[in-house]
């Protein structure tokens, strides 16, 4: 068994998990609840084992690095972070419908990592600039933040769906979604959590850049886009706690913010160029 196989299984397990949660929502199949949670927890553990095994394999290959150093590995970690964040959310709010709007992100991330021919999955040696503990801290903090933002956008979508037909009859599909007030609260808490981690991510990135090149900030496109994302979320949070925004507007901003995250993460690597272009497929 090698890490690619384990991570392949992870992809299937997240797919199963996402489908179960969607089934719980769409068919109101409450009985599937426990199974969905168990499958998700197992998928998460297999994901963890896959990362750990890849780590070990890199040592066996005589390279030895934390598997957080290229696009493939970061997508795998992204899925991992979404899964654990979601499990925490489910545990806290005791609501499995949230899974229908969260786990698809983990599934998509893994599927994209596994299936896209764009990035190599082989363990490649690290160029000197990437050999830094700050890089590890940077990737972890950023992706924990991104995971929260992914879930927040899922909750935003859920809010917008529910709100559009708020006055539907009780017992209908949308009535099974949490109350708008609750979704709004989850969005806010998730954004706040993500914002703290994104801030830490930008800071650790700056410290890394400073130790490698002597400049903590050079306005390269990746840095700039992470700052743009940070501005978007800062504005969102201020709109909420100082101007009392909530509901639809914040839900939309949660979605917009996540689009900015995707662009920072994906768009910059493939559409723009800069220091971080090592993250690309080549």
């Amino acid at each position: 068994m090698n890490s690619s196989q384990l991570l392949g299984i992870t992809t299937l397990a997240y797919l199963l998990s996402a489908m179960l949660y969607i089934a719980i929502f769409v068919f109101r199949a409450k009985k599937l609840g426990l199974i969905a949670t168990v499958i998700t927890a197992c998928a998460f553990l297999i994901n963890t084992a896959g990362i750990a095994l890849r780590w070990q394999e890199s040592y066996q290959a005589g390279i030895g690095y934390a598997p957080l150093s290229n696009m493939y590995e970061s997508l795998v970690f992204f899925a991992w972070a979404i899964a654990i964040f979601y499990l925490g959310l489910e545990w806290k709010y005791k609501n499995r419908i949230l899974g229908a709007f969260s786990m698809p992100f983990a599934c998509l991330s893994m599927a994209y990592a596994s299936l896209s021919p764009q990035f190599g999955k082989e363990i490649k040696p690290l160029i000197p600039a990437l050999q830094s503990n700050w890089l590890i801290a940077h990737v972890i903090t950023c992706f924990v933040g991104y995971a929260a933002f992914a879930v927040a956008s899922g909750m935003g979508i859920m809010y917008l769906i529910k709100d559009r037909k708020a006055n539907e009859a009780p017992g209908s599909l949308l009535a099974s979604l949490p109350e708008l007030k609750v979704i709004d609260d989850i969005i806010h808490k998730t954004l706040v959590f993500g914002f703290l981690w994104l801030t830490a991510g930008i800071i650790t990135g700056a410290v890394w850049a400073n130790s490698a090149w002597g400049t903590y900030w050079s306005w390269d496109p990746k840095e700039t886009w992470s700052l743009i994302t940070w501005f978007v979320y800062a504005a969102t949070l201020h709109a909420r706690f100082t101007r009392g925004w909530g509901g639809r507007r914040i839900a939309w901003l949660a979605v917009l913010g996540f689009l900015s995250v995707i662009f920072t993460y994906y768009g910059v690597n493939f559409l723009l160029s800069g220091l971080h272009s090592y993250g690309g497929g080549s």
Partner: peptide
């Protein structure tokens, strides 16, 4: 005013995009 803060945050965000599209 916080309104100005929201405005400047969003203006900073949008103008920052320029420099990522046009090589510096």
């Amino acid at each position: 005013s916080v309104r100005l803060a929201l405005f400047s945050l969003l203006i900073l965000a949008t103008t920052s995009i320029i420099g990522t599209l046009i090589p510096q």
